[in-house]
Nucleic acid binder design. Structure first.
Lengths: 214, 214
DNA sequence: ATTCTGAATACTGAATACAGAATACAACAA
DNA sequence: TTGTTGTATTCTGTATTCAGTATTCAGAAT
């Protein structure tokens, strides 16, 4: 089936990518006319897209209605990860009865290949794809939406891996094992543990960073 | 300070209220021209508001770009409550060090008065205000946003109390005690227990409802 | 009677125009 | 020199128009 799309969706996607890539910088004020000209559209779909991104807290509006790219603090990133800790583990519980074996196999293979080759970039990609998959395949719209957005936002701030493959590889395998044995509670707890450790690493980073600045 | 607002915000608010009140019915298809005329605005701010509500999953867009009010199933409401179970308890953890004693006192008084007078409507109002307060006062934007939206959505489907005051009154007092003694972990667990029991009640309702239909 | 096709009508997305508010700058007064 | 005021310019929110698409209806073909 042909899926009807709109310019708004396209502009929204492009702007998101520009934020994620850093082309639009945190704190940068967006001027509608300039941006519309740059993207080759009128202000109408652009304004729609800006409002949507604002509604997702990626953009911030001042009292004078100037829109800027949100500056996400490490503290806020930690909160996002804490939210993901419970939401993504909930998603794993829901996903366990329905995830296809071929997906489980694919992720296990991707993680293992990258890990054994000590290819951190490949491992990072597998990591990102895995978490993205869990969000996208979650069978409930509301949870799917929140996971997608919080995942995107933490990715904007934190490029690369918080913890190295040596730490996370076995955790990923454990989650996959629970999927495979169709153990929802196990999958939920395995994912919770996985992300909680990342949260704790971020808190360590925050605290050492704070000590440097203090 | 005077806060600048827009027609979009106003239309958004009115539409949300119309959905919550049932004036716009689940499944109802919204026609932009008619609705704009009814609200006394042009289609422009209306269209913006519709997109925002769609982005929050309150409205659903078909492939032909017709927008209708989302029909939320009991299963989906349960998922929303499960999300709230962990997110609202997380918010309680964050809120515990900063919540003002006068707010604690006010909620305790409101719950107690309504409970002792056996006034279920007053109790329901105190209940709603309490949960709304926790969402609104959460010091982190992203969590605040998700809580506000999931709270609104569950309220649209589930009018009134899931469980009676006799069950929840003591649970509310326990949360307030943890706030008062500045015990974040206690507050988090007390709220988690409170909502989990509600989740379990909803699952019972779902399962008995399923049996009737089965 | 049923199905198909084309035209008319209704609806939506995007562009453009207009009005009001915000900002920048120059001139004037103290 | 500094502070205030007035004016010009820029920017944003909203209304309107236009073009494209979806839906409905009537007539023709089977």
């Amino acid at each position: 089936m042909i899926r009807r799309t709109t310019l708004v969706e396209e502009v929204y996607r492009v702007l998101r990518d520009m934020i994620a890539s850093g082309e639009l910088k945190p704190g940068e004020v967006l001027v509608q006319d300039q941006l519309a000209e740059k993207l080759g559209v009128s202000r109408t779909p652009l304004l729609h897209a800006l409002r949507l991104l604002e509604s997702e807290n990626l953009l911030i509006r001042s009292n004078t209605h100037r829109v800027s790219v949100r500056q996400l603090t490490l503290e806020e990133a930690i909160v996002l990860f804490e939210m993901r800790e419970s939401l993504e583990s909930l998603a794993c519980r829901y996903l366990t009865p329905i995830i296809a074996q071929e997906d489980i196999d694919r992720f296990r293979r991707d993680f293992t290949l990258a890990y054994e080759k000590k290819n951190v970039e490949e491992y990072r990609k597998a990591d990102t794809a895995f978490h993205l998959f869990i969000a996208e395949r979650c069978p409930y719209l509301d949870l799917r939406t929140v996971l997608a957005r919080s995942g995107f936002m933490t990715k904007c701030l934190i490029k690369g891996l918080v913890r190295p493959p040596e730490e996370t590889y076995e955790e990923h395998l454990e989650i996959l094992r629970c999927f495979e044995t169709r153990n929802p509670i196990g999958a939920e707890e395995a994912m919770r543990t996985h992300i909680r450790r990342t949260v704790e690493r971020l808190k360590l980073l925050r605290d050492s960073h704070g000590a440097l600045e203090g």
